Amino acid sequence: MRILVTGGAGFIGSAVCRHLIRNTGHSVVNVDKLTYAANLSSLEPVADDPRYRFVRLDICNREAMLALMREADIDAVMHLAAESHVDRSIDGPAAFIETNIVGTYQLLEAAREYWSGLPADRRAAFRFHHVSTDEVYGSLPLDSGRFTEQTPYAPSSPYSASKAASDHLVIAWWHTYGLPVVLSNCSNNYGPYHFPEKLVPLMILNALHDKPLPVYGNGANVRDWLFVEDHARALELVLTRGRLGESYNIGGNAERTNLEVVEAVCDLVDARRPRRGGGSRRDLITFVADRPGHDLRYAIDASKIARELGWAPTQTFESGLAATVDWYLDNERWWRPIREGRYAGERLGLKAG
């Protein structure tokens, strides 16, 4: 298939592009606006492949997106373009409304016009895959429950509210116009090429440089951690084999408190790069004011995608985190320009207004 991937220079999007080019026979047109967290160096492993192409474009530009779909003769859309950091949505929600809601609407309309002009057999085979987050479901108690595809939406942050809105738009275009869509909602991703403001890479790099490791509140908030390359495999399955109009939850079955994650990072970095003078980097952990609207726990029930599509994660949290730490230690060329340039390693999202 000829697949249009939006947001393919971002963390998950680049993993999807690398997976599709390395492990399938599909070709990829990667569309990205190249905002702050996009990084074309994340695509270097596939950039010279004849089945890969990059186009700098804003998904809000409906006419340009439609023209590209026609020119590239697209068979499917994987929509990952989004403003995706909760902390940034607290500090500046406007960009999240524009990209995640308005941008998804414009892309849906471009796809609908493109799809409606295809021959009947290609109309039947066309897919629009919308990639979303478990944060649309809100918060779970610490001691019970997991998110299923039937869990009611209850978003808590501007980010999760914007993603919930985009999910509703996509399913409405299925019910109203018949656009052939599939959806997926994932848990917290981690792995190589992750922008350094996110929890895992921030802690790896701060620990490496003996800088404070800021943990919100008391560190008791729980997330289900999913290795990004496992997620990329799942997304391909949802696109190619998922049932139309259905949503699939994708999780790593790896719940950890934020504090447990940070402590595990400290121990791995200590084992690979011992501190001068000895001692544990756990001493660098610093508890900071909790962010507004901080959900207590997320946990994914991924039994539907396992049952219907045969997917399961290949990485445990321990193996995936070790591979991630090793990647950052071996790839300073990738992360150093980010840390020294556009982003200095601060914690965001502490403003309430």
Rank of each mutant, 00 (worst) to 15 (best):
S144F: 15
A172R: 14
Y153S: 11
D143N: 13
S184C: 10
L199E: 02
R146K: 12
T151C: 06
R146G: 09
L169E: 03
S156M: 15
Y153E: 13
T148I: 12
Y190F: 15
K198H: 14
W173H: 13
N189I: 03
P180D: 15
F195A: 09
C186K: 13
K198G: 00
L169C: 11
Y177E: 14
A161W: 08
W174P: 01
E149A: 02
L142F: 13
Y190G: 01
A207V: 12
P141W: 12
K163L: 05
L142K: 11
Q150R: 12
Y193D: 05
L199F: 12
H194C: 15
V182N: 11
G145W: 07
S144M: 14
E149W: 13
I171N: 03
Y193P: 01
P180Y: 08
A165R: 01
L199W: 05
W173D: 07
M203K: 07
R146I: 05
G191H: 10
Y190E: 00
G178I: 04
E149S: 04
G191R: 04
H175A: 09
Y177M: 07
G178M: 07
L199T: 08
C186G: 10
A165G: 07
E149N: 13
P201F: 12
Y177I: 10
S184E: 11
P158Q: 05
W173V: 00
C186L: 15
F195M: 08
F147N: 01
M203F: 13
T176P: 00
